[in-house]
Computed example of a mutant assay.
Amino acid sequence: MFDIDRIYNSQNDRIWAVNRLAADISGGIRQKRKFPQKVMVWLAVCSKGVSPVVIFENGTVDHDRYIKEVLPAALKFGNDTFGAAWTFQQDDARSHIHAKSQECPDLNPLDYCIWDEPAHQVNWETVKSKKTLINEVKRAVRKVSVDVVFESCSSWINRLSQVKGNYLR
């Protein structure tokens, strides 16, 4: 989810300072609107690159929207990139675990670092509306570093090889 008030996660974004004044000088005060304009974004990544972005301007993604809007983009990207020899991986997002969605392939996000890339590529000074947010997200996705994507894929493969047992969730 991207909104026009920039990226800020109160659980992850920390400022270390000796006191509140020093924290505020370093950016500790974050003004946010009560109901900022926002868009939901879907993106696939693999060791060979980044898919075209799918942007949901309104509402949330249920299983019907997922099947109709995301899976065609994902399947096209997979087929164009790998031909017939590729597999989606399932995660537990609500729209992905619906019985109808289970009949279709799915993609598991590799790492949160992938989302960090476009979020930090957005020129937040130009984002003033949903339209400018969408334009900036599209531009930012095109600038995602192939090296970061490859590193994320390599890291995931290394972590997968360490799993013991035969059930992954």
Rank of each mutant, 00 (worst) to 15 (best):
H98S: 04
A99F: 08
K100Y: 11
K100F: 12
S101E: 02
Q102H: 14
E103A: 12
E103G: 13
E103W: 03
E103D: 12
C104K: 12
C104L: 07
C104S: 15
P105E: 12
P105C: 11
D106V: 14
D106G: 14
L107V: 15
L107T: 14
L107K: 06
L107H: 09
L110T: 15
D111R: 07
Y112K: 11
Y112P: 10
C113W: 14
C113L: 07
I114S: 04
I114N: 04
W115C: 06
W115M: 10
D116E: 12
D116K: 11
D116I: 06
E117K: 01
E117R: 01
E117Q: 12
P118D: 01
P118I: 02
A119H: 06
H120M: 09
H120Q: 09
H120D: 09
Q121V: 11
Q121Y: 13
Q121A: 15
V122E: 00
V122N: 00
N123K: 09
N123D: 15
N123M: 08
W124Q: 01
E125G: 06
E125N: 11
T126L: 15
T126I: 13
V127F: 07
V127S: 04
K128R: 15
S129G: 08
S129M: 07
K130M: 00
K131Y: 00
K131V: 05
L133V: 01
L133W: 02
E136R: 03
E136K: 02
E136G: 01
E136N: 11
R139N: 08
A140L: 05
A140M: 06
K143Y: 10
K143G: 03
S145E: 05
V146C: 07
V146M: 14
D147P: 00
V149A: 01
F150M: 09
E151N: 10
E151T: 06
E151G: 10
C153V: 15
C153S: 15
S154R: 11
S154A: 14
